[in-house]
Design a binder for these strands. Structure first.
Length: 489
RNA sequence: GGGCCGCUAGCUCAAUCGGCAGAGCAACAGCCUUUUAAGCUGCAGGUUCAGGGUUCGAUUCCCUGGCGGCUCACCA
């Protein structure tokens, strides 16, 4: 069995061309290239009237228009596209013929020559020499319709990136968003840290984990569902402001807004509280929107959204009251709220607690209506095991989530730092677990021990980076802002 | 996990009621010295996702499975 036996008809044809080149003493995969300018630089400098003389450009050949003894070809590099003009009279009959025979769409080439404008005004390289840099054995996707099959786009992302330029721009924008976020946090005094992805106890969020096993230690380990508890321990250790941007893993459903691994930013500010985190959220939205789109007025699907601070804020109770005419502070027990929901014939799945019912009501009747950036505050205590209770109403916590265009982008609290209260919350979670809540927190004695040493009053925030990238690049599936989204095998 | 839709040439897509498997691009053999999805002539290209069933005959109808998409539920 030879390599060539693994190739289909089209690939074989192209592979034979590579062999032919080699027979002529031309290496189809040379180790080094010459490049005097990028394509973008070439265009820019030519338009400025600069005489560049002879240039040597490199790129992938993406189009080919030949009319007998001349050929127009397009090459693209990472910066742009430019047209090549190849003429038999310039290259010589033999070389020109070899070019026609052995160069294909998709090949990386190096072209040298001088610049001119065609009669239609297009900047073009009059090619004196063209060299193969890397022979493409497999053919490119079709040039006009491109590649649209989503499965191929995700599984062979390089093809998607190769032919769909707007896809490359989405990922450039994603990188600008991350860079802007880091720059903001860095200059605001937050220190970037790294905490364990493999954890003996998972925590910091309500979610189902992935489990793995360490052979030498002979124990189960979990992939982190959040960074929270490790980051807050650092504040016990006297760091004042920390953040981490990392992958979290949750063993749950996959859909347009959920993947099993996703990127989360978490930051914690000692001597801060909820209102400080609101400022951080507003600042991050501003910085990232400007980095991604250069404007605070953005389009997301059918919505026009203005990200200019200050963002609106509304209490969970008031928002639910307005949409459903249910006052969760009147029906402030599980049984009462359940009865009220049935009485009003609202469609809410069975839940295990008052707080989860509130969360469901909110998700079904309020969340989709929150288009302009809005902080929703005062979340039920039993679904907020790490948030400090409101001093004047222990049913709810000093917690907000930020909503834009009907979706959540971040979650923040005034962090719970009372070790006794935290211990009781863990116990409550264990009760929930016993009653069948697979997402309930496990008791984390080590974390309580840390709190016993004193966590300063702290504001903490988590933001979904993929979701933010979706919002700011107008993408409606998380798979379109993640280079290699998880698919079935 | 449930419901719905899809899977045909390398890519983008057709195929009427169940009756020989088709086109464009790409490729191949040619023509053509300023093209822009270049054009023209010719030629080739298939496990119709897989397996099973019904039928004289299945891309088409039925069943099972795989993969993908949308949606509902859950979660960020």
């Amino acid at each position: 069995m030879e390599f060539i036996d693994t190739l289909d008809t089209l690939e074989r044809e192209r592979f034979l061309k590579a062999l032919r080149l080699r027979e002529r003493g031309v290496e189809p995969y040379p180790p080094r290239v010459t490049r005097t300018h990028t394509i973008a630089e070439t265009r820019e400098q030519f338009e400025q009237g600069k005489d560049l003389g002879a240039v040597t450009l490199v790129g992938r050949m993406t189009a080919n228009r030949w009319t007998g003894k001349i050929t127009f070809a397009d090459i693209r590099d990472g910066t742009g596209r430019i047209q090549l003009f190849l003429r038999q009279d310039n290259l010589g009959a033999e070389t020109y013929k070899d070019f026609l025979k052995d160069f294909d769409l998709g090949d990386f080439v190096q072209a040298s020559g001088t610049l001119f404008k065609t009669k239609t005004g297009e900047i073009t390289v009059q090619v004196a020499e063209i060299i193969m840099l890397a022979k493409a054995v497999a053919p490119m996707p079709e040039k006009f319709h491109g590649l649209t099959d989503k499965e191929t786009r995700y599984r062979q992302r390089y093809l998607d990136l190769m032919v769909n330029e707007e896809v490359r721009e989405v990922f450039r924008a994603r990188q600008r968003i991350l860079t802007a976020m880091r720059a903001y946090l860095d200059r605001s005094g937050f220190i970037e840290v790294e905490t364990p992805a493999l954890q003996p106890l998972y925590g910091g969020a309500l979610a189902k984990p992935f489990t793995t096993y360490h052979n030498e230690l002979k124990r189960d380990l979990y992939l982190r569902i959040a960074d929270e508890l490790y980051l807050k321990r650092l504040l016990v250790g006297m760091f004042e402001r920390v953040y981490e941007i990392s992958k979290d893993f949750r063993n749950e459903g996959v859909d347009a807004t959920h993947l099993p691994e996703f990127t989360m930013m978490e930051c914690y500010q000692a001597f801060g509280d909820l209102s400080d985190m609101m400022k951080v959220v507003e600042d991050i939205f501003v910085e990232c929107a400007l980095a991604a789109q250069g404007a605070l007025q953005i389009t997301y699907g059918e919505h026009q959204v203005d990200l200019t601070p200050p963002f609106a804020r509304v209490a969970m109770r008031d928002a639910i009251l307005e949409k459903t005419e249910i006052d969760i502070y009147v029906d402030d027990t599980f049984d009462a709220l359940n009865a009220r929901i049935e009485e009003k014939h609202l469609r809410v799945e069975p839940q295990l607690s008052w707080g989860k019912l509130v969360e469901k009501l909110f998700g079904a009747y309020v969340e989709p209506t929150l288009i302009a950036p809005t902080f929703v505050i005062d979340f039920p205590t039993d679904i907020s095991p790490f948030a400090k209770k409101k001093p004047d109403d222990p049913r709810v916590t000093e917690r907000f989530e930020i909503y834009v265009a009907g979706a959540e982008y971040g979650n923040a609290f005034t962090e719970l730092n009372d070790p006794a209260d935290q211990w009781e919350r863990f116990m409550e979670q264990q009760g929930n677990r016993a009653r069948g809540d697979a997402e309930a927190q496990q008791m984390d004695d080590d974390y309580v021990q840390a709190l016993k040493h004193g966590l300063p009053p702290t504001g903490g925030l988590g933001m979904g980076v993929d979701r933010l990238a979706m919002l700011l690049t107008n993408q409606h599936s998380i798979r379109d802002v993640v280079l290699y989204p998880q698919l079935r095998n």
